[in-house]
Amino acid sequence: LEARLEQAAMLKRVVDAIKDLVQDCNFDCNDSGIALQAMDNSHVALVSMMLKSESFSPFRCDRNIALGINLTSLTKVLRAAQGDDILTLKAEDAPDVVNLTFESPESDRLSEYDIKLMDIDQEHLGIPDTEYAATITLPSSEFSRITRDLSALSESVAIECTKEGVKFTCTGDIGNGSVSLRQHTNVENDAKSVDISLTEPVALTFSLKYLVNFCKAAGLSDRVRLCLSNEVPLLVEYGLSNNSYLRFYLAPKIGD
C-alpha cells in the first residue's frame, strides 16, 4: 500500500471524530481505497468510513490488506502532523507496521513514524441498502447545535419528520425542549439550506449521547445528511470530497 494525502488534516479529523466511539479498527485497503467498519462496545452505533482511492494521489494497493490499528496510538502519531502536511501511508504485504510520513509543503521537514499493527478479529455486519422514508440534509453546525442543546436536558431525542418539517424533541427532569426546522433554501449560501425529502412520515427516538459523539465529525463537512425510516437505525452521513464519506449508524430506542 502507498497512499498519499495532500492534507493530513483530513485523516486527523476522521480519526478524531471516531476515536471515542471505537478503539481498535481494521483499515481495509484494496484498490478502491481504504475502508473501516467498526461498532462501539455496546453494539448500538456503527462507524463506516470510506476513503476512495481518488481522495489520494497517488494511490496504489497491490494486494488487499487489513491494517489493524489502535486509534489511540494513531491519534498520538497524527498529533505530530500539521494539518497542511502531505501525509503518506505505506504498508508492505503481510505487514507488522504501517508507516506514516508527514512532509511540510513549505520546508524540507520530513517526519516518519511506524505504528505496530494488531490482529483484530472484527465482526463485519451486512448493512442492507435501505430506501429511507425521510432524508434531511442540513448544515452540520446546525445539527451539532441541536444535539448539544437538547443533550443538556435529556438522554434521548425524538426525531419526527413530516411534510411540515423536522422536529427534534426531548423531555428531561428540568423540563422539555424542541427544535423545529422547515425545508428552506438559502439563496446566498446553499450550505445553509435545509433539504427534506420524505416519502412517509417518520418518528423515532435516539440516544443523544451517541448523536453528540457523531457531531465530532462536523469539521469534515459543511453538510450532514440524516436518513430515517421507522424502526430502523438512523444513518448520519458526512460527505467528503471524491465521494469518500464518514457514516454513523445508530440503533433506535423502541417501545415504552
Binding site: H124, G126, S156
Partner: peptide, 14 residues
C-alpha cells in the same frame, strides 16, 4: 422509557 436496541437485530452477520 423506550429501550435502546442494538444493531445486531437490524444488520445481518455475514
Amino acid at each position: 422509557g423506550p429501550k435502546q436496541q442494538t444493531l445486531a437485530g437490524f444488520f445481518s452477520r455475514p
